[in-house]
Design a protein around this nucleic acid. Sequence first.
DNA 1: ATCCTAAAACGAAATCATTTCTATTTAGAG
DNA 2: CTCTAAATAGAAATGATTTCGTTTTAGGAT
Lengths: 144, 144
Amino acid sequence: MDQRHATALKAAGMKATPKRLAILEMLEAEPGYASPEELWKRLKDRFDRLGLPTVYRNLEELSESGVLSKVIHPNRQLYYYFCSNREHHHHFVCLSCRKVEDIPSCGIEALEHEVSKRNGGKVLSHILQLNGLCGGCADNEEKR
Amino acid sequence: MDQRHATALKAAGMKATPKRLAILEMLEAEPGYASPEELWKRLKDRFDRLGLPTVYRNLEELSESGVLSKVIHPNRQLYYYFCSNREHHHHFVCLSCRKVEDIPSCGIEALEHEVSKRNGGKVLSHILQLNGLCGGCADNEEKR
DNA sequence: ATCCTAAAACGAAATCATTTCTATTTAGAG
DNA sequence: CTCTAAATAGAAATGATTTCGTTTTAGGAT
Ligand SMILES: [Mn+2]
Ligand SMILES: [Mn+2]
Ligand SMILES: [Zn+2]
Ligand SMILES: [Zn+2]
């Protein structure tokens, strides 16, 4: 039914299992990021059996293949979210309500070039994430 | 004797205990990042008693107060390093040898402005880190 | 449509880096 | 020198995440 997700999975070289599709649907409907356990609690009734390790494994694999994104959270727990924007970009994440907003550009090319020029290093990946309070949460904060 | 570190601690509102100073000296002498346990193993003989929780606690407090920096590592373990550059900047970290290199500029002001303009959100912190292989490790990689 | 097999999922148990807790020690202000 | 809030000890707990041996399944091949 959600051919889009099945296609994305196939493109990533992963089988389109019902559980993977359910995880993607649930995260797509979610405005913010979610933890493995939260997703598991909300999904397990839809299946005869659904193990928490399965959710962990799939979230990690989906993140690894770029279908999902991972949050670097100060509390060091894992959180994932769905973003359909296929361009390279980053995110602002609200630490209060968990909303995620796109940040279209990062000057990574210049920084990568800088690193390789200066010391011959090779940049394999980069993290750019803004943490804060979204508009709504910042307002609530003020009223307190 | 290392008045610099004692001063830095005082400036951060922290007592200049021998253990904190030893942690700072050890990390300053280190070219890259280190884990709490590694530091503990290398420091505990210098003291009658030194608990691993003390190392964890101090590293976190020192990182919290900006005296040390923390690495966001793919393996999700904690690593810290010392950087004396007091300007706002970020780092390239080598995933192989753990070397850390400065990245002088990040376009954070523009991004912060973008976030607050678009949705009224408030940016509280940001992460920018490049992961990769430093010059030396990239060379070794090629020879294999 | 059925077979076949590598991939996926199960789930109980283990892991182990990190944190907590209470008692004891200490830095440093007064 | 005294005093006290801050720092440390260290054993124990924690709990999110991972492992592992077994069972099930998706999807290409027949
Ligand atoms: Mn996005
Ligand atoms: Mn630096
Ligand atoms: Zn980027
Ligand atoms: Zn910055």
